[in-house]
Design a protein around this nucleic acid. Sequence first.
RNA 1: GCCGGGAUGGCGGAAUAGGCAGACGCAGUGGACUCAAAAUCCACCGCCCCGCAAAGGCGUGCGAGUUCGACUCUCGCUCCCGGCACCA
Length: 901
Amino acid sequence: MSQPSSSAEQYDGQSGRSRYRPQEIEPKWQRFWLDHKTFKVEVDLQKPKYYILDMFPYPSGTGLHVGHPEGYTATDIIARYKRMRGFNVLHPMGWDAFGLPAEQYAIETGTHPRDTTARNIGTFRRQIQSLGFSYDWDREISTCNPDYYRWTQWIFLKLYERGLAYMAEVPVNWCPVLGTVLSNEEVIDGKSERGGHEVIRKPMLQWMLRITNYAERLLAGLDQIDWPDSVKEMQRNWIGRSEGARIRFHLCTPEGARFSEGDAFFDVFTTRPDTLFGATYCVLAPEHPLVDRVTTAAQRDAVEAYRQEAARKSDLARTDLVKEKTGVDTGGYVLNPATGTPIPIWVADYVLITYGTGAIMAVPSGDQRDWEFARRFDLPIIEVVKGGDIGKEAYVGEGPHVNSGFLDRLNVADAKKKMTAWLKEHGHGEGTVTYKLRDWLFSRQRYWGEPFPVIHVDGQPYPLSANDLPLVLPEVESFRPTGTGEPPLAAVREWVETVAPGTGKPALRETNTMPQWAGSCWYFLRFVDANNAERPWDTDKERYWMPVDLYVGGVEHAVLHLLYSRFWHHVLYDCGLVSTPEPFQRLVNQGMILGFSYRYYEDAAGNCYSFHQVQKIVQDGAEEPTYVLAARPDVALTVRYAPVEQVRWKDEKPYHPEEAELELEPQQDKMSKSRGNVVNPDAVVAEYGADALRCYEMFMGPLEQVKPWNTRSVAGVSRFLARVWSLLIGDTGEVRPQVSDEPADRQAHLTRQYHKKIKKVSEDLDGMRFNTALSALMEFVNEAQKAERLPRALAEGLVLALAPFAPHLAEELWQRLGHADTLAYAPWPTYDPELVKDETLTVAVQVNGKLRATIEIAAEADQAATLAAARGHEKVQLHLEGKTVRREVVIPGKLVNFVVT
RNA sequence: GCCGGGAUGGCGGAAUAGGCAGACGCAGUGGACUCAAAAUCCACCGCCCCGCAAAGGCGUGCGAGUUCGACUCUCGCUCCCGGCACCA
């Protein structure tokens, strides 16, 4: 590998001085890395592998913001570090390219989503490459490419074969304005996540994936992986396992005579079967199929009215935060299997049709919701566990059972066991487990997604053969949904109408497409063998590279993407197609980068006010506060933002760009266009360079932490890089004479510092503590600047240690130091443990726990010598004078404490 | 309401097997270089008391506790951020 020349381009003709010029060296090295495919990898059984992955970006039209490079820089640093440590590093990048925004843009402008997406990918790629990330670009993939989605369809067929994909008529979130069905995740407060349009519920025949079959394994798998506890906890909550019992209740007359029909019953799920003796009524969800059956003629109108109201309420989602329970008596009765007495059946919307069986047994003494409901409607409350005051609230704690027949005097755990056994024995029910997790609605009424490899013959779905893949998206006249709920693909008759292979019967193609999650559920597998035209991936390559050793991305994917892709991976594992059940061994979430925004307020007439004049009003239950003029609370105000680059500064305070006296209120907010606080990485690169941006993003604070962007601090990091440059390179562009070829003096202060800092940087990189690693490098550079000579070995070690953080600068310096090869695979600098130890130690001397002096002692000084030195210090003597020493605490090499009275 | 995370100078943050709080950087102040400015370099930079300094006192959200010693451990609060919200 030969390198481009480092010539006079660095030489500043005007001042005659060579300076650190990132704008010149960065494109040079980026070109070099691409031209030489420096980061291309293949399977190498001689080397340990390391698979390091960034979460798949969606290439939006707005390009990168400074949040993207945070995670990408972290992974790039680890990738470069691991290469220097001798690992074979797989570090790929690609595009989650299907998705609604390109389709929305197509509807508005007629531009094909393919073209929009290609353009956006171009922008993303250019921006990412301008930051010097060490991706293997030969593995770049895009989910909207038929060579890729062919295999997404292939995996769908695997799911179908295993009975994990099925069609069901389900009420879906239908958004008339977008003309599409949205997933629950895309609906926020009853409005579409994108655009804020109204969403209503509408039944539709949909593809579903049976993720619930894997609930138990998805839960168990969490124990095997190294993820943040908070993310594991979120997944556990999302899966929502609860253990209890299914209990059968038989319909009966008000007098308790059991109906004879075989289907005159419903099941409830309860986690507290031990409280069955306290069940004084049952509640059905409004949507429960048995509601009509149990409702008496007298109650029919009331029940029907309530059901309609409840249906409307769910359309408005949960904006109605009324805490008070509502419900209606159906007039029907069931037998309590434990007591044999009839209890009434009610309908109430606090029971959810989507959880458990959609019906509950209500135990007002043991469940606060049931208690509130019973109080409201004057239903009986019977104590079954002693210990609380059921006149005031439900008691959920531990205690002996009472009023419970054969359970009396038992504790909760034993009573649960005994009741569960009793239920089974008498045919009233059995122990069971329920999950909150629902099956995954996998259809979208959109154009820009993977077509399902399915045809319908006589109303029955049939999968295509794997040989017929990819089933390519046809061209359409219009991207607009048909408006009836039928997807755009339904309009392409010549594509939709086909014949069944074999029988030749007329058939219709499936016109739904897959959701965006589909492509991102397995992309990490395609990366191991991205260009394989025969198979989705080669199993030997999969076995070598998988699992992903380090996966970095935003916490917003904590549940959905990470749960869905784990689900697919478990299925592929069961198919024998992958070698590990879990795809991502270690997960790290980077914290969001906030931007400073500058607020002021405006009234309806267009008058502007500073935050000093404004009062904030937070109403109970309201999500957003409202603002009024402090002097005139009847004047409602709207929040406005001054764009960050237009803010004027006066005496350290921000002011409005036009209104001279209008002081702005600085706030840290999530970056967004509307707040005018978005920082574009292109601008930062243009001014300070990619290395400075990378280093700043790492220097801001711990990776996982939320932190505010401060452009002024970028300049500080940029100065550090310039100091490294001028430490090694003189005015002429040549290596400074101070960088001497004589071997480093082992005893020299600078040598010892060097070994300490290399140790610190190595350990911090292992622990992904990038901010403190950079601090250590800065400290070394500060020391080296003071020294008269810098031995070459130390200079080279510094360059290598800096390389993962500021690779362009490091490559340039490495070249000028006389190396012909890239430093990407140079061995990571080592340290000598002997030189890391201090010769003398600074020991703190305390009297009664207060610091009074510090003393320098030899590293090998024993306890007695330390104590003597401490006593000898004049300040210490001053504080010991006239006192009795009760105790002497000596922590070797650290501290001495005299306890005196 | 529940679950998870957090609170340290003017700002971002350092410091955990309990042992010198404020590393490193930003901002600020003073100085050097310069005709001047920028850049660069040097010094100072938690708060209070104080003419200055020394000496002293106070300081890691609040209140207790354990300990010779607590940013760090225990208990009880407050506030902030993220997630889920009638999950039987």
